[in-house]
Computed example of a mutant assay.
Amino acid sequence: MVSSLPRNLLEKFARLYAERGTSEFRFQEAEEILGETEKYVGQILPNLVRAGWLEKKVDPEDSRRKIYRVVDPNRILQRLGQELKDGPR
């Protein structure tokens, strides 16, 4: 499931996508790309993951860290369109 995003999160998603495309990135890279504090990025990334706009996996080199990937916007639009077509459940 994919949910819509408030404008501020959509802007963060767009910035990550513009910089990284659908390539993987780590938390520290997101901080640099977004130009935000560690605390704020620590709120943004989980919100984007919950909304279905980012994917997250465990870093194989350090299980305490996570690796993120932007979901292709075409996939997001397809899923949103399908959910609208299917209607409420």
Rank of each mutant, 00 (worst) to 15 (best):
D86M: 07
N8D: 14
E38M: 04
T37H: 10
I76Y: 11
T22E: 06
D72Q: 09
R69C: 08
P88A: 15
K12L: 04
E19D: 12
R20T: 03
T22R: 03
V70L: 05
E61N: 12
K66S: 15
R26V: 10
E61W: 01
L84C: 07
I67H: 00
R79H: 09
N74G: 12
L45F: 03
S3D: 12
P73H: 10
E36Q: 13
L10K: 15
L80E: 06
K85Y: 15
G52N: 05
S63H: 07
L45W: 07
R69F: 01
A30W: 10
A51F: 08
R50M: 11
R50K: 15
A18I: 04
E38T: 14
E11N: 13
R15A: 13
E11S: 14
S4M: 12
E83I: 01
L34N: 10
V41H: 08
G42Q: 02
V58P: 09
Q43P: 04
W53T: 08
N47D: 14
R75M: 11
Q28M: 06
V70H: 00
G21R: 02
L16E: 09
V49F: 10
K57T: 14
F13A: 08
L34T: 10
V49M: 04
I33S: 03
Q28E: 14
R89D: 13
D59T: 05
E29L: 03
A51W: 09
L84Q: 12
E29V: 07
G42E: 03
R89N: 11
L80Q: 04
P6D: 14
E19Y: 03
P73I: 00
E55W: 02
V2L: 05
A14P: 04
Y40E: 14
P46D: 00
F13E: 05
F13H: 11
R20D: 00
R26S: 00
E24P: 03
D86N: 14
M1E: 12
S3L: 04
W53V: 01
G21V: 08
T22M: 01
F25N: 00
R69W: 00
Q82H: 05
K56P: 08
